[in-house]
Design a protein around this nucleic acid. Structure first.
Lengths: 162, 162
DNA sequence: TCTCTATATGTAATATCATAACGTATCAGA
DNA sequence: TCTGATACGTTATGATATTACATATAGAGA
């Protein structure tokens, strides 16, 4: 499984691997990986893109797993708070984590053309931002890093657009 | 005027300076700095914090400058698209730019306790994220960098919490 | 000055995203 | 079995944002 995410890959094993990793995490930390939570993660993993809460809810509703917004939001809160999924603030949408279990600050590369989202790593406490925070006496606890641009596939289709 | 923003400063001259800079920019680029747009920027500058669109709209309504959401959103769109203000995605709120005119990628330091927001610079195309984007063939055009933590003032009040 | 056109504004309606509040169900541990 | 904590079901509502269309205004050119 690639960490970048725009390339082709063995999707089925990628989904399975992530599910197994999350199952193991939940068992290790005595977290309840309930049917709704599991299904929401499965949906996110299988779509492999950022999805809105109501979009996920539509799927749940079709499957009889819940029809009201709090059902989806609660499952998403669980997944996000345990880092099994992330919220993409820019899109008001959610995406499965591509490497659950590893502590990390996710950074997203969002294609403005096809909406594909790839997860990379960021180190906000380093670099120019970290220095600015240090100087200001600001203690960074968490960071959102989201870059918008063109993914490799869409760059080919729209080469060097004016 | 400090670029960091948690410290005390001469607020009146900071507001005036920013307004003058924006006026100059608009004149230079033949942009219409209309009363509503100007007033929205003034509100943001004088509050010196991130404000929701509806919060701004409340002020406009009291002043008879417009009462429907599009009035506020359109003014904000103008300010944001010309980089005179920024949207803080994490808060669904807007904040005046502290150095209008300079091309830059803003990075925000958001205090989770008092909601103060400071603007710093980021260089998303450098560092670990830039390398990841290069490797993936992703062309970064724009980036959102938002760090959540404790500002220096709130750190003093809640020293080394748990 | 007049007229045309592009831009900006006013307004109603509605779409989209998210949470509060409260009752019920389920499960682990005493 | 009882009990407390956690999760779920449901209603209602709050918060954020946009579409669509009518009106007004500024600036360019005749």
């Amino acid at each position: 499984m690639d960490t970048i995410g725009f390339e082709q890959h063995d999707h089925k094993s990628c989904v399975q691997g992530a599910l197994s990793a999350v199952e193991a995490q939940c068992a290790a930390h005595k977290l309840q990986f309930t049917p709704v939570r599991r299904r929401v993660l499965e949906i996110l993993l299988s779509e492999h893109r950022a999805m809105g809460a109501y979009e996920i809810l539509d799927v749940l509703r079709d499957e009889g797993l819940g029809s009201q917004p709090p059902v989806a939001y609660r499952a998403l809160d669980f997944l996000v708070s345990h880092r099994f999924a992330h919220k993409v603030e820019r899109l008001n949408a959610f995406i499965a984590c591509t490497h659950p279990g590893q502590t990390h600050t996710p950074a997203f590369l969002i294609c403005r053309n096809c909406d594909a989202v790839a997860e990379a790593h960021a180190e906000p406490t380093r670099g120019i931002l970290g220095r600015a925070a240090d100087e200001a006496g600001f203690a960074i606890e968490q960071a959102v890093v989201e870059a918008v641009g063109l993914c490799p596939n869409c760059r080919e289709e729209q080469p060097a657009c004016a």
